[in-house]
Every structure is written in C-alpha cells, then in structure tokens.
Nucleic acid binder design. Structure first.
Length: 275
DNA sequence: CTCCAGGCTTACG
DNA sequence: CGTAAGCATGGA
C-alpha cells in the first residue's frame, strides 16, 4: 500500500473526464496500467494506491510532477477558463502508454465514450493476458497483428478494426516507430502519426497529448468544436467549415499558450457535463 | 424512424 | 482545390 502526497490533484475528475477508457469506480477506482492492476482512492491530499507498481511509476502516470499552479497561471487567459480551473481544480492529464493510447483513439473515431470503453474491455479480454480475476493486460501490437479480422468482430469495433490491426502490423514490422515519437517535436510527431490509416489530426493530437505529453497539442473533436463555437466564436468567423477544426487548434495555441492541452481537458469536461 | 457519438478516407465536381 | 457520402455500433 502506497500513500502518495498529491496536492492539487482530483482523482475522480482525472479518471472520469474521458481521457482514459480502462478505469472503473467501484469501492475504489480500479484500472490496469502497464500490465499491473492498480486500485486507487483519495483522502484529502493523500493518494492511496494498491499495486505492484512503484511510487515513481504512479507519480509519472498521474503526472504529479506537473506544476499545476504554473500551468493555471499560463492558461488562465480569460474568464471562462478561470472559472473552469476553479470548478475542476486538480484535474490532471495522464501519461498513458503510447500503444494503448493509440489503439484506444483509433477506436474513438465517430464513436461514444461508452462504446470505446466497451471495445477496449473486450479487446483486453479476448487478446490480452489475464492478470487476476476479471483483469487483463492490454494486448501487445504483436498479439493484435496476428488476430484474424473475423475474430476481432466480437470486440464491436466496426469499421475501425482493420485500422487497429494494420497499425499493430506497422509497429511489429518496424514500418512505424511509435516509441521514437517521444524524441520528435509536436509538429514532427503529428506528421508521423497521420501516416497510420485511421489516424487524422485529431487522433494524432490525442496521442501526442495523452501519451507523449506534448502539452501544446489541442485535440479538436465535436465537443471542443461546440464549446469553442459557443464561447470563442468571434475568433472563428470567416473560417470555412472544412478548416474550422484546424483554426480552433491554432487559435487555442495562440490564446492559451504552450500548455493549451491542459485547457483543452477542462473545456472538454465542461462540455461533457453540460445539461 | 432519425440523429449523434473524443473522425477519417475516398469519391466526385 | 473544395465538399459530402459512407463507414459499424449503440443509445437517445
């Protein structure tokens, strides 16, 4: 049992804001990270962890080394984001495994969070390794590259299944250096990721932000598009519909600065919770 | 029934 | 160039 000092951290918000798909809250939050089951709960500023992973790995996963005060002062450029910082204080980005992150977001296109979570659970149950009762590791690229498409149909991924398997094959064959992206700039990494079939700008931005910690990434999906239209419409007039998402991302980098990926997460959660 | 969901690819003017 | 249909699946 680990007790980790975690000020400015909100476990519930961090795990329920839609950035990760393999955590569930029962009595405690339970998830699988890097092949190990983690059970987590929070008591005030103490994060209480039961896992075989060490303290450093947990701190790294939850990005507890991020200086949130500095990030808040950087992105807090207007009234809206200031109010969201106040409302969702302690929401942190998570440092996900690149392959699981890529696979999850390949599955995310034109899909719901509920369906994505269901598909990722099935993928792990069908093709991962059993760790303990009811908990499975995320299958490696090798494991998925060998799966027949007809066997993948049971994971309910629909038209995205061939994209996931071909991404796995590209990584296994050495055709795509996923882990090398950590050494690239945001722009270079994006140019690489969109070479994968089924990966466009938005999914590339999610992988760059959630797995590689490129905090200047600002993924623009339907939720972000809607909330940005509502609150920052004056900055998007005269932009053609087909260029709107690019324009929103560029505006966000100018407006919120180099930590705009954090701003994205707060805006996204606000739109998720709208009535 | 239609419309939408953390989009992307392809085809057609 | 630009726009639009089509893509599986499930829920509202």
């Amino acid at each position: 049992m680990l007790r980790i000092h975690a000020p400015d951290f909100n476990l519930d918000l961090t795990l329920s804001c839609g950035q990760v798909f393999r955590w569930d809250k029962k009595e405690r939050w339970t998830g699988v990270v890097n092949g190990a089951v983690i059970r987590a709960e929070q008591e005030g500023s103490e994060l209480i962890i039961e896992s075989t992973l060490d303290k450093i790995s947990i701190q790294d996963y939850f990005r507890l080394d991020d200086n949130l005060e500095k990030i808040y002062s950087e992105i807090g450029r207007d009234k809206l984001i200031e109010s969201l910082i106040k409302k969702y204080r302690g929401l942190r980005l998570i440092r996900q495994d690149p392959w699981e992150c890529l696979a999850s977001y390949i599955c995310s296109s034109n899909n719901t969070i509920r369906n994505i979570k269901n598909s990722m659970r099935l993928i792990c149950e069908c093709f991962g390794n059993r760790i303990e009762n009811g908990h499975y590791s995320f299958p490696t690229p090798d494991a998925l590259a060998q799966v027949e498409l007809c066997d993948m149909a049971s994971c309910r991924m629909g038209f995205r299944a061939p994209n996931l398997r071909s991404a796995a094959a590209m990584i296994v064959d050495g055709e795509f250096d996923l882990y090398g992206i950590k050494d690239l700039s945001y722009e270079e990494g994006r140019a690489e990721l969109v070479k994968i079939k089924g990966v466009g700008n938005k999914i590339a931005d999610c992988v760059l932000l959630f797995a590689f910690g490129k905090l200047e990434s600002f993924p623009v999906d339907t939720h972000i598009e809607q909330i940005m239209e509502r609150y920052y419409s004056e900055c998007l007039k005269d932009v053609k519909k087909s260029k709107k998402r690019d324009a929103i991302g560029e505006f966000a980098r100018r407006h919120f600065g180099g930590y705009c990926g954090y701003a994205q997460e707060y805006l996204y959660l606000e739109d998720l919770e709208k009535l």
